[in-house]
């Protein structure tokens, strides 16, 4: 019953497109890492990118908040629109864009600061809080959304690096949502976590879907099936197939997708 409801909601949400990529190509020096990818990503939905290692799924994810700008040899062509605005335009400030498009990385990377300062970092930089009590509120809200508030509320001033791996990753998610982004990019957020921490983070991702458009890169097909409503399959820099998760996993159209799902390649 609940599944039905969830499916229903996902279907409705699909109507409004949050991110629209058109003919995106990425080159690392001579290597053509992403080949002509076009995709429409819906708001309030979890979209999973799956595919074998080196297929370009992380590279594509990093285009959405222009993290590839920080790599000297990377070159991106094509257009990516968020809410109709072309973010690949050189006039768009990547710094402002990244406040709107948050990112969670593969390995938990809390700053060597206190838990509080880790979360307050983004809001401080972007001037989101007018005073200390404002900031306290933002930090608490972010930690609650990161489903870690109860575990850390009594030790906000202790270093974030002292938490366990799963807690660190949820702290990083809280840190990312603290700047009130509209899109949340997650680059294999559970690959460094044990199964219990993974389950907690996955549950959190499902809750975050209420407020954000979540894009998650994952190696685990089970994870994609569990958390996402739409799935895109990447292979050798091409986006082979994109559609509703259930259909991709049960009745894929492309033979390459079928081979990957059934474990014959990748």
């Amino acid at each position: 019953m609940e599944d039905m409801y969830r499916m229903d909601k996902a279907m409705n949400a699909q109507q409004d497109t949050k991110i629209s990529a058109r003919n995106v190509n990425v080159y690392y020096g001579d290597k053509h890492a992403i080949k002509d990818v076009s995709v429409e990503i819906a708001d309030k939905t979890v979209t999973a990118f799956i595919g074998p290692s080196g297929c370009g799924k992380s590279t594509f994810l990093r285009c959405i908040n222009r993290m590839n700008d920080t790599i000297d040899i990377a070159r991106v062509t094509g257009n990516i629109l968020i809410d109709g605005e072309d973010i690949t335009d050189p006039r768009v400030d990547p710094v402002q864009l990244r406040a709107k498009v948050g990112m969670v990385f593969q390995k938990p990377n809390p700053f060597p600061k206190s838990i509080y300062d880790n979360v307050a970092y983004g809001p401080k930089i972007h001037g989101l809080a007018r005073n200390k009590s404002d900031l306290d509120e933002i930090v608490e809200r972010a930690l609650r959304r990161g489903a870690i508030w109860d575990e850390v509320k009594d030790r906000l001033l202790e270093p974030g690096t002292g938490l366990s791996g799963g807690q660190q990753q949820r702290l990083c998610i809280a840190r990312a949502v603290a700047t009130e982004p509209e899109v949340l990019l997650m680059d294999e957020p559970c690959s460094a976590l044990d199964p219990i921490a993974t389950a907690q983070v996955e549950e959190l991702i499902d809750e975050l879907r209420q407020s954000y458009s979540v894009v998650i890169v994952t190696h685990s097909m089970q994870q994609a099936a569990r958390v996402s409503q739409k799935t895109a399959f990447f292979h050798l820099g091409n986006m082979v197939e994109y559609g509703v998760t259930d259909k991709i996993f049960t009745n894929p159209e492309d033979p390459r997708t079928e081979s990957y799902i059934s474990g014959r390649i990748g």
């Binding site: 710094v95 990244r98 983004g122 930089i125 972007h126 700047t179």
Partner: peptide, 15 residues
């Protein structure tokens, strides 16, 4: 200092 620290900060929209 690990690159992931820099990525984390840049990813939050820090200059």
């Amino acid at each position: 200092v690990p690159q992931s620290m820099r990525d984390g900060s840049l990813g939050l929209g820090a200059t």
